[in-house]
């Protein structure tokens, strides 16, 4: 199989949250117990944010515009980007790209530095403070390998979730957007085709990305690129140059007797100390 993708059609989601449960079940994840991950935020949303034990949530978004108030349900999780900032900043190679496009997560290598969590344009990975490991949606890479669909997709009853070859998912998404636009949702659009080199989670949105809390033009942070591509070699060069110079001076001067003698000078000539 070439590149794969998960399709999330937010216009079909009814917020049953079966996918949230299926995800927890497949990954054997406990409930979130810390108050900040479970606090009541004044809506029907289950958790305020993704968490180390919660790889996907349905966000409940109320949007008021000239057409009145709409209630959107948006499934949130890892986007499996082609240009993945998390992979760029992970020095431990705990995150890597599979051939099928999945951003693979190797928990054994992770040390929980949290660089990925902060540099992700969608702030998806979360570090579990107990295990000191970063976690996120895996797109059920082991199920996919076995020819199954991700757990969330296989449980979705409304057809809001789909999974398959990326090209096919894009085609379905585009057709759906065309239909939605005919029905009057003029701002309906595909999200993820070109963003960050093309993501492997693709959205059908009924409105502009910002309405769903998605950045209109997500980018790998400039600071991350400068850090990894230029800063590190530069720092290493500065260190090596200093070490080399110092060692050179050490061997050059080692045998010299440059210790100052008492000669009651008036601050005149010195002989190289």
């Amino acid at each position: 199989m070439g590149e794969v993708a998960k399709l999330i059609d937010v216009t079909k989601c009814t917020a049953c949250r079966g996918c949230q449960v299926a995800c927890k079940q497949w990954h054997d994840l406990p409930t979130e117990t810390t108050p900040d991950k479970t606090k009541f935020a004044g809506s029907y949303q289950s958790h305020p944010d993704l968490g180390p034990n919660t790889y996907t949530i349905i966000e409940f978004i109320e949007n008021t515009n000239e057409n009145g108030t709409q209630w959107h349900f948006k499934k949130t999780g890892c986007m499996h980007c082609t240009d993945a900032a998390c992979i760029l900043v992970c020095e431990k190679k705990a995150l890597s790209k599979l051939e099928n496009g999945i951003v693979y997560r190797d928990m054994a290598k992770c040390v929980g530095c949290g660089y990925c969590a902060q540099n992700c344009p969608f702030l998806v990975p979360k570090v579990n403070p107990k295990t000191e490991k970063a976690t996120k949606c895996t797109l059920c890479e082991n199920r996919v390998e076995a020819g199954l669909k991700p757990a969330c997709v296989s449980t979705c009853i409304t057809g809001a979730l789909d999974f398959g070859p990326r090209e096919k998912m894009l085609e379905i998404a585009k057709n759906r957007v065309a239909t939605l636009q005919q029905q009057g949702m003029t701002k309906a659009q595909v999200y993820g085709e070109k963003e960050l080199g093309g993501t492997h989670v693709i959205y059908v949105l009924g409105d502009a990305p910002e309405v769903y809390g998605l950045p209109a033009d997500p980018q790998v942070p400039l600071s991350a690129t400068l850090w990894q591509k230029y800063g590190k070699p530069l720092g290493a060069a500065a260190f090596c140059a200093s070490l080399g110079t110092t060692l050179f001076a050490f061997f050059l001067n080692r045998k010299k007797d440059l210790a100052p003698k008492l000669h009651h000078h008036e601050g005149g000539k010195s002989h190289g100390v």
Partner: peptide, 15 residues
């Protein structure tokens, strides 16, 4: 985000 590259660059340079 900006403190990562700064910390990372300052460490070897200061050393």
């Amino acid at each position: 985000l900006w403190c990562y590259p700064l910390h990372s660059l300052l460490a070897p340079c200061l050393t």
